[in-house]
Structures are given as structure tokens and as C-alpha cells.
Simulated scan of single mutants.
Amino acid sequence: MDDDFDWNKLNEEDIIVRPARETAVYLNSDGDVVIRQRKEWPDEQDDPYMVIPMDRVPAFLNRVRQLIEFSQKVQNEP
């Protein structure tokens, strides 16, 4: 193994896994979907989160699927 490894000399495509906040998805007491991320910064008072009313979850998931399909098309373009 090369002990002279330097992260600063890598090309962007060499990094394949990036750090991500821990993310939880659960139902709150009203039965809505909560997407919550663990706070990372000292100035954050609380975990960032969003609440999606259960009746809007299908529209949310449909949009996510559309974005995934679009992203896959863009990545496969020459």
C-alpha cells in the first residue's frame, strides 16, 4: 500500500462514496412520514427534518421515481 496517498490529488471520479448524514424515516404520532437527519453542526439546535402527510406520500414517491429515471437517463447519455 502506498503511504504517500494524498486525497487532494484525486480526480472527482475517483471518490465513489461520499459522507452522508445519518437519516431516519419513520411515522409520527399523526401517521405522517418523517424524514429526519442527525444534526452535524454545532450551531444546529435540532435535527433537520421534514414531515410528509400520508396522503401526499404517493405523490412524493412518484416525484422521487421521476427524478431517479431522469438522473439515470442523463448519466447514460454519451
Rank of each mutant, 00 (worst) to 15 (best):
E40L: 09
E69H: 05
E22H: 13
R63K: 14
E44K: 03
A59H: 09
M1R: 08
E69C: 00
E13P: 02
W7Q: 00
A59D: 15
Q45I: 12
F70Q: 05
D14C: 07
K39M: 00
D14Q: 15
D2N: 15
S71D: 13
V17E: 14
N8S: 11
A20V: 13
Q75V: 10
D47M: 06
W41Q: 13
V74C: 09
N8W: 03
N28W: 01
Q37N: 09
V25H: 02
Q45R: 14
L67S: 07
V74W: 06
P53Y: 00
L61Y: 03
I15Y: 07
A24T: 14
S29H: 13
Q37T: 09
R65K: 10
R38L: 10
S71Q: 08
G31K: 01
K39G: 04
Q45C: 01
R21L: 02
L10T: 11
V74N: 09
V25S: 06
L10W: 06
K73W: 12
R21W: 04
N62P: 06
E12H: 14
L10A: 03
V51E: 03
D4H: 13
N8I: 00
V64K: 04
Q75Y: 10
R18H: 14
P78E: 07
Q37W: 03
A24Q: 15
V17D: 13
R38T: 14
V57F: 06
N28H: 02
P48Q: 13
Y26F: 15
N62G: 07
A20M: 13
A59L: 08
V33E: 00
F70D: 11
E69M: 06
D2G: 07
P48G: 04
D55R: 11
R63L: 08
Y26P: 00
Y26S: 04
D46V: 09
Y26A: 06
D14T: 04
F70K: 09
Q66S: 14
M54H: 13
D47L: 05
N76V: 06
F60K: 03
P19T: 06
D46Q: 11
L27C: 00
E22C: 06
A20P: 00
V34Q: 03
M50T: 12
F5N: 01
Y49P: 02
N76M: 08
V34W: 04
Q37D: 00
D14A: 02
N8M: 12
V74G: 01
L67R: 11
N8A: 07
F5T: 01
K39R: 15
V57P: 01
D46T: 13
D2W: 01
K73M: 08
M1T: 11
P19D: 09
V33N: 02
D46L: 09
S71M: 05
I52A: 06
V64M: 06
E22R: 10
V51H: 04
E13V: 07
F5Q: 00
F70G: 03
N62F: 10
D4C: 08
